[in-house]
Structure formats: C-alpha cells, structure tokens
Amino acid sequence: MASIWEYANPRKFMSVTDRVLPWIAGLSAIALVAGLAWGFFLTPDDYRQGSTVKIIYLHVPAALMAINGWLMMLAASLVWLVRRHHVSALAARAAAPVGAVMTVIALLTGAIWGQPMWGTWWAWDPRLTSFLILFLFYLGYIALWAAIEDGDTAADLTSVLCLVGSVFALLSRYAVNFWNQGLHQGASLSLDKEENVADVFYFPLLLCIAGFVLFFLALVLLRTRTEIRARRMRALMARERMA
C-alpha cells in the first residue's frame, strides 16, 4: 500500500503537484468568483447592518485561513521535527507569508466593517487583539526563517518556535479574553445551527470559504514548489563548486 509519506519526497511531490495544482487553482478561482458574486449581488442587505454585512464574504474566510494557516504550519513543523521530511519544513515556510497576509486581510476588512458598525476603525476587543498578536507571531516566524542561512538549521529553529509560539498564542488568546470582554459578535458559523447566520448568507459564505481554502492551498503548493526548486538549485551549485 502506498504510504502518505511517499509524497514527502521532493521529486514525487513535484510531479504530483505539477498535475494537481492547475485543478486546485482553477477550482479556487471558480469558487471565489461564484461565491463572491453570489454574496455581493444576489443576497439581500441585512436588516440592521445594511450592505456593509457583505464584507463578511472576505472577512470570515480570511480570518479562518489566518488561524488554519498557523495550524497547518504547526502540523508541518511537527512532521519535520519527528520525521525530518524536507517538503514538510518547506511547506511550513511557504505557508507563513500567506497566513500573514490572510491575517492582514482579516484585520483590514474587520476595520472597514467595524467603522460603520461600532463607529471605530479599531477597538481593543479580544478577537481583534488576538489577531494582531497572531500577526506578530507570523512576523517573528518569517523573520527567523529569513535570518538563518542553513536550510536545515532554520527548519529546526523555526519548528521549535512554531511549537512554543502556538502555546503562547493560545495563552495570549485566553489572557486577552480575560483582559477585556469585547464587542465582537459571536462566531458567524458553528455546527450548532441555532446561532448561525441566516441561510441566505450561509451558502454563499460556505462557497467563499471553500474558495479561500483552495486559494490558500494553491498558493502554499506553488510557494513550496518554489522553495524546493531553490533548494535543488543550491544543491546543484554546491555539487558544481566541489566537482
């Protein structure tokens, strides 16, 4: 039986993603265009929030990917530390800037949404603050990768930083909650259907989330491929130099 770890081999990874990537990119484009168009033009305005509610189609998926991006990096870091597959370390590296940008999108759309709703661009609300802190963690992680030349050393150090950072990010989340009870509304989506947004908003939102997930995946795969090529080039140059 083929094991999943086979795909951790850079060559195998390259050949598989080469075939899969266009499909993922295409699907994400379709889902995003359809979801956003549906959301922006075909749903009614909210009776309280008016048309501003429509920013939800960017805000919620971006916020989801900001957190899931970090979780993906955490999983990839663990895989690197335990099994030492290079692809996994490089995927974590590739995901960081994408996740950071998702965090920025979530913060910016949140500010744009918050201005008319709460009358302020920014409030030190627990959720907002947590995202800001998450962004700082992304920055530190990216900076550490950039500062270290040797690939494996950088992978080891950033993996440990990711683990420790995850614990402290979680701690900060609770600390911030404790520090200030906020004005952010509860989660827009949950499995408990009672609390969810109305169905008219729900389905286009799901489509947008699917689009963001695929978009994130496509970007991470693309960037991982670039990282692999860069490492391959370095290895070839080293061989050339020594020969």
Partner: peptide
C-alpha cells in the same frame, strides 16, 4: 563524491 544536506532534492 559531493554529498550535501540537500541530497533529497536531486
């Protein structure tokens, strides 16, 4: 022969 840490990538 030359062996680098990036052998996996060749």
């Amino acid at each position: 022969r030359v062996v680098t840490g990036d052998e996996d990538f060749l």
